[in-house]
Amino acid sequence: MLPPVEPWLVLSFCAAIFFIGFTGILIRRNIIVILMCVELMLNAVNLTFVTFSKTLHHMGGQLSVFFIITVAAAESAVGLGLIISMFRTLRSVDTDEIQLLKE
């Protein structure tokens, strides 16, 4: 039978998702995918909060997740606005094209 789920296992799962997102931010060049990787990292942190809320019998973790979800929604709205603005200027969503300061 499967081993029982310990807190460290859930936290390690969160770390796995977090570092998948981290690696994605470093190796991808498409700015939309980079923003998706940021969302992955935020989700991993949210699950860490919920796990600690469960193990410590404290509700502060779940309240923090509520506020983080709000901030993430605001962040992606502004981020996608920036992407549209970047696309209008450069006609591309590639981060290699952002080199205006080199001129």
Binding site: A15, F19, L26, I27
Partner: peptide, 13 residues
């Protein structure tokens, strides 16, 4: 990126 991610992940685990 990959090695750094793996090392940090191992550290966290």
């Amino acid at each position: 990126a990959m090695i750094g991610g793996l090392v940090l992940f191992g550290l966290f685990v």
